[in-house]
Structure formats: C-alpha cells, structure tokens
Design a protein around this nucleic acid. Structure first.
Length: 238
DNA sequence: CCCTGATTCGC
DNA sequence: GCGAATCAGG
C-alpha cells in the first residue's frame, strides 16, 4: 500500500483532528499504526502529547500540584535520547494538546518553571483560587465541579437546527486549516458530519468556546467515546 | 497486560 | 521513504 495524496490527506486530517495512530491506521486499512506514526513524522506533523517523553519529575510534580502544564512551546529540536548527565535546558517541552486533551495546559503568562521546594509555598503558589485560566482566556473546569459532565465529544447527532441535507456551507474535513476551529460536529460517516469552523483561539486548534471543552482533565478510558465511530467518509463497512 | 507516540535502522 | 522492531510512559 502506498501513500497516495489522498491517503496522506486523510492521515493529516485525522492526525490533526486528534485521532490516534491506531484509529488512523485502521481507517486507512492495510497499514500498521507504526506506519502511520512514521509517516506522520516524516510529514512533519506536530506531535500530540505522547505518553513518552516531555515530562521530567519537576513537570510531573507541578502538574500534580496545580493543573498547569507547558503550552505550545516551539518544537524542541530532537535532542539525543541517550544523554549522559546534562539536564535538559528547556523546562517547557510539551506541545499543543489534542482533542482529548489529556494534559492540563499552563496559562499563557510564563511563570517560574522550576518548582522550588525550599521556597515558601504560600508565596510561590499565589493561586489559592481553584479556577485557572487557560491560555486563550477560557476558564478551566475544576475536577470537583464536574457536576454536569462536559464530554469532549458532542452527543450523537446533535446538530442544532441545521438541515442535515448536504454539507453546504459547512466546514468539512477538507476545509480545515490552521485558522479555523477543528471541533467536530456530529460523527465521521454521518452525512452532516462537519467541523465548527469558527476562528481559532490563536495557538489552538479550536475556537475559544471549544477550547473550554477540549482542555480539561483527562477522562477515564471507560468514559471516552470510541464505540460507535464510523469510518471517515467510510467506504468500508465492518 | 493493555494502550499510547517516538525513535531506530534495515530495507 | 517506508515501516517493523523497539523503546518508554500511562
């Protein structure tokens, strides 16, 4: 199986839409997730938060203490993995979060990157407020106040007051670019599946409103929604 | 164990 | 360029 332009386009869109490599591989068919990842890297697609790398003890602790993580730092030049003893110079290695946004995001205003245990905690953590503000100015939901669960994926078929006929005037997969919100409306495979299409919250793949939905605490795997997804534009039916 | 993405390296 | 093998964190 070769990488035709179409397949590359699908890969790119799905990757940017936050689909996992496995999902993409399954969709493309006849290909492994490794192939997808390899191709994505060769294409220069930005990484989504990987389980591997991009966290040292300090970062972990900071993330645990307060919902804060680095935001959209410029891509870190690939440093040799086999390091001897030199500590990483860059304290903020993490990249933009994906759709499911497992990583909390640090506020835009840079604060001291290093957590100093010896410093007076009261002064160094001037955020007794439980609510934190995301980089785009949206308010993050705290773990305790998830009374009404706002899941990243909108309910099935919730396409308010829009004629399901056609994607006329809607933002389709092929319309996506860096400036418009990639928040999916509906589900792949449905006739009216499209994307939000509003102006993005600068530096993010979504508009401000959807950033507020996307960037919150990681949901347990059980509560995510992979079950009903239909193939992208799905010619294949399983 | 399962999952994830990153990286390496022979082809 | 490709992707299996491998690595490594969750």
């Amino acid at each position: 199986m070769s990488w035709t332009e179409e397949r590359i386009a699908t890969l790119t869109k799905m990757w940017e839409a936050g689909q996992t490599a496995s999902q993409i591989a399954e969709e493309l068919g006849g290909i492994s997730r490794n192939a997808v990842i390899g191709k994505a890297h060769r294409l220069g697609l930005q990484s989504r938060p990987s389980p591997v790398r991009a966290n040292d003890p300090e970062a972990k602790k900071a993330a645990a203490a307060a919902p804060a993580a680095p935001v959209a730092a410029p891509v870190e030049p690939p440093a040799p993995k086999r390091v001897e003893a030199s500590p990483p110079p860059a304290p903020e290695p993490v990249k933009p979060a994906p759709v499911r946004a497992p990583e909390p995001v640090r506020a835009a205003a840079p604060e001291p990157a290093e957590e100093d245990d010896t410093a007076p905690a009261a002064e160094s953590r001037p955020q007794p407020t439980l609510r934190s503000v995301g980089p785009g100015g949206f308010l993050r939901q705290n773990p305790g106040e998830n009374s009404a669960p706002i899941t990243p994926a909108p309910p099935r078929r919730l396409v308010p007051a829009r004629p399901s006929e056609a994607i006329a005037g809607k933002t389709t997969l092929l319309d996506l670019n860096d400036r418009i919100c990639k928040w999916p409306i509906g589900h792949p495979g449905e006739p009216d599946f499209h994307f939000c299409g509003d102006k993005v919250n600068p530096g993010f793949p979504y508009c401000v409103e959807h950033c507020g939905h996307a960037y919150q605490a990681q949901l347990p795997r059980r509560d995510r929604r992979p079950p009903p997804p239909l193939p992208y534009g799905g010619p294949r039916v399983r």
